[in-house]
Amino acid sequence: MSLQSDLKTELVSHLAVSDFTQVVAGTPVRDTLARMRADRQVVCLVVDEDAADESGRRQLVGIFTERDVMRRVIDAAGTLDRPVDEVMTPDPITIGPDASAADALRLMDEIHVRNLPVVDEDGELMGNMTHQAIIQYLADRYPVEVLNRPLDPEQFPRKAEGG
C-alpha cells in the first residue's frame, strides 16, 4: 500500500487540521502580527466584513503567512502600518472537508502552497490544512513504528527485552 492510496480513503474532515488567526480586511499589518504572536499561529486568514452572507458569515478574502512576512514585510519600510490586504495573498485556494487527504496533499504539491484553508459548502472556515495534519495522521496510523521511539535515538535498545 502506498501513501497516496492510504490517504485516498481519509477525508480532510477526519484529520487534525491546524488552527489559524483571523482578522478582518483593513487590519494594520502591525496588529495582525501581534494577533498571530499572541495566538502562536503562523497563518492568518483575512475575512471581509462587508461581504458577509445572510447568516453573518464573513467571506474569506486572503491569507497572510510567515512566508509573506519574509517576502513582503520584513524588508519593506512602512508596511507595518499598511492594511494587511496589501501584503496578503488574495483569494487563496481552499479545500472542502469532504476532499480526500490524498487530494489535499497532491494539491499542495501542485500549486506549491503549505496552507489550504478548509471551507465547507456554507462558507464556514473549519481549519487550515497543512503537512502537519498528514504527519499527525502517519504518527497515529503507525504508532509502533513512528510514535513509540525514544527522543534520543542513540538510546534505542538493541533488542526487545521486556522492561
Binding site: E145, N148, E161
Partner: peptide, 13 residues
C-alpha cells in the same frame, strides 16, 4: 537514562 522498553512499546508514547 537509556530507555529499556521494547522498540514500539506504547510506553514510549
Amino acid at each position: 537514562q537509556t530507555v529499556r522498553w521494547c522498540p514500539g512499546c506504547g510506553d514510549y508514547s
